Computed example of a mutant assay.
Amino acid sequence: MPTTVLVEGESDRVAVETLAGAAGLDLAGAAVHVVAMGGATSIVHHLLVGPDERVLGLCDEAEAPGILRALDRAGVGAGAGGLAERGFQVCRADLEDELIRALGPGAVLAVVEAQGELTSFRRLQHQPALRDRPLVHQLRRFLAGRSGHKITYARLLVEALPPGATPEPLARLLADL
């Protein structure tokens, strides 16, 4: 059965595809198409799938109520309960937060350093708006701060995950595939 996996953005798509590849899943061969919606509110445009197509997804916690309403309106998994019962997994804050917690800030800093961007991160840490913030918040800001950073680091952070350290929402999504 063809499967569409709806994710909020390109970094989410890259993370899911990278993780699937690392797990040995051939998404194309399994007729799985991962779609970056361009934001959670665009879900209504992506729920027009064929009757024999399965829809799964990944979203941020803040977007979960809107996703659930959109699924209800579209009749996707009607009566099945919450998002998890309908194949939609929820990241606590966002995907980057899940990856930072799974790896730990030290490992994320090692990935940043390997990319030659530790000096840039240290400069960001000293900005007045961030200097008193927790390291995890600073890392999330760094990952989202430059165009393309979230996409690049989604792949790098997933590749850095040790065996068994896959964040729960991603692990459940892969299990559903």
Results as ranks from 00 to 15, higher is better:
L25M: 14
A70D: 06
L56Q: 04
G66F: 02
A23L: 13
V14W: 09
G21W: 07
G38Y: 06
E98K: 05
L99R: 07
G82E: 05
G106K: 08
G38N: 06
A62Y: 08
A20S: 12
L109N: 01
D26W: 11
L71V: 09
A20V: 09
A107Y: 13
A40E: 03
L109S: 02
A78S: 13
L25V: 15
A78D: 09
G29M: 11
G66V: 00
G38V: 01
A23G: 07
V34D: 08
L19E: 14
E17N: 08
A62Q: 12
I43P: 00
H46V: 03
A31S: 15
G38F: 07
L103V: 04
A78H: 13
F88K: 00
A36M: 11
G39W: 00
V55Q: 02
L19N: 12
G29Y: 14
P105Y: 03
F88N: 00
V35K: 13
G24M: 02
G66K: 01
R13S: 06
G82M: 01
V108K: 06
P65L: 01
V49K: 08
V35W: 10
A102C: 11
G66L: 01
G75L: 05
S11Q: 07
E61H: 14
A102T: 04
L95V: 04
I100R: 13
V49C: 07
L19M: 14
G77Q: 13
I67A: 00
E63I: 02
H33E: 15
D12K: 02
V32Q: 11
L103T: 05
D26P: 06
E96I: 00
H45M: 03
A80V: 09
D26S: 09
L103H: 08
V35T: 12
A30Q: 15
A30R: 15
P105M: 06
S42P: 00
G29V: 13
L56D: 04
R54T: 13
L25F: 14
L47R: 07
A31E: 15
G82R: 03
G79V: 05
A40T: 04
A93I: 11
T41N: 07
A107V: 12
D12L: 00
G104N: 09
L58T: 01
T18F: 12
A110Y: 02
V111Y: 02
L27N: 14
A110T: 05
